[in-house]
Amino acid sequence: MFKRLMMVALLVIAPLSAATAADQTNPYKLMDEAAQKTFDRLKNEQPQIRANPDYLRTIVDQELLPYVQVKYAGALVLGQYYKSATPAQREAYFAAFREYLKQAYGQALAMYHGQTYQIAPEQPLGDKTIVPIRVTIIDPNGRPPVRLDFQWRKNSQTGNWQAYDMIAEGVSMITTKQNEWGTLLRTKGIDGLTAQLKSISQQKITLEEKK
Score class of each variant (00 low, 15 high):
1 M>V: 03
1 M>W: 00
2 F>W: 09
4 R>K: 15
5 L>G: 01
5 L>Q: 01
6 M>K: 02
7 M>Q: 03
8 V>W: 15
11 L>P: 02
12 V>Q: 02
12 V>T: 06
13 I>A: 04
13 I>M: 15
14 A>C: 14
14 A>Q: 07
14 A>T: 13
15 P>I: 02
16 L>K: 04
17 S>F: 08
17 S>M: 14
18 A>R: 08
19 A>N: 01
21 A>I: 05
21 A>P: 11
21 A>W: 06
21 A>N: 13
24 Q>H: 12
24 Q>W: 12
25 T>H: 10
26 N>K: 07
27 P>N: 03
28 Y>I: 06
31 M>D: 01
32 D>K: 06
33 E>P: 06
34 A>W: 14
34 A>C: 09
35 A>P: 02
37 K>W: 07
38 T>L: 13
38 T>I: 08
39 F>L: 03
40 D>E: 09
41 R>Y: 02
42 L>P: 04
43 K>E: 07
44 N>K: 15
45 E>D: 08
47 P>V: 12
50 R>T: 08
50 R>V: 07
53 P>S: 14
55 Y>G: 07
56 L>H: 08
58 T>S: 09
58 T>E: 07
59 I>D: 00
59 I>E: 04
60 V>I: 15
62 Q>M: 14
62 Q>N: 10
64 L>G: 01
64 L>V: 03
65 L>C: 05
66 P>D: 15
66 P>V: 04
69 Q>T: 15
69 Q>W: 01
69 Q>M: 03
74 G>K: 00
74 G>C: 05
76 L>C: 04
76 L>N: 02
78 L>D: 00
80 Q>W: 06
80 Q>I: 11
80 Q>K: 09
81 Y>A: 06
83 K>T: 08
83 K>H: 04
85 A>I: 05
86 T>Q: 11
86 T>F: 04
86 T>M: 11
86 T>W: 03
87 P>L: 10
89 Q>P: 05
92 A>T: 15
92 A>L: 13
93 Y>V: 04
96 A>N: 13
98 R>I: 05
99 E>S: 09
99 E>A: 10
100 Y>W: 14
100 Y>M: 12
101 L>S: 14
102 K>F: 14
103 Q>V: 15
105 Y>E: 01
106 G>S: 15
106 G>I: 04
108 A>M: 06
109 L>W: 13
110 A>V: 03
113 H>Y: 12
114 G>E: 06
116 T>F: 11
116 T>D: 15
122 E>T: 11
123 Q>W: 12
126 G>K: 14
128 K>W: 06
132 P>F: 11
132 P>K: 10
132 P>Q: 05
132 P>D: 04
132 P>G: 08
134 R>S: 11
134 R>F: 01
138 I>K: 12
139 D>A: 00
140 P>A: 00
140 P>L: 14
142 G>Y: 08
142 G>A: 00
144 P>G: 10
145 P>E: 05
146 V>H: 11
147 R>I: 05
148 L>T: 03
150 F>T: 05
151 Q>D: 04
157 Q>P: 11
160 N>D: 09
160 N>P: 09
161 W>Y: 03
161 W>D: 00
162 Q>Y: 03
162 Q>V: 03
163 A>R: 11
163 A>N: 07
164 Y>T: 03
166 M>E: 04
166 M>K: 11
166 M>Y: 06
167 I>K: 08
169 E>I: 03
169 E>A: 02
169 E>P: 04
170 G>Y: 02
170 G>E: 03
171 V>T: 00
171 V>G: 00
171 V>P: 00
172 S>A: 00
174 I>G: 11
176 T>K: 01
177 K>Q: 13
177 K>P: 14
177 K>M: 13
179 N>D: 04
182 G>S: 15
184 L>I: 09
186 R>Y: 01
187 T>I: 10
189 G>C: 09
191 D>A: 00
191 D>S: 05
191 D>E: 05
194 T>I: 06
197 L>G: 05
198 K>F: 15
198 K>W: 09
201 S>D: 15
202 Q>D: 14
203 Q>I: 09
204 K>R: 13
205 I>F: 12
210 K>M: 10
211 K>A: 12
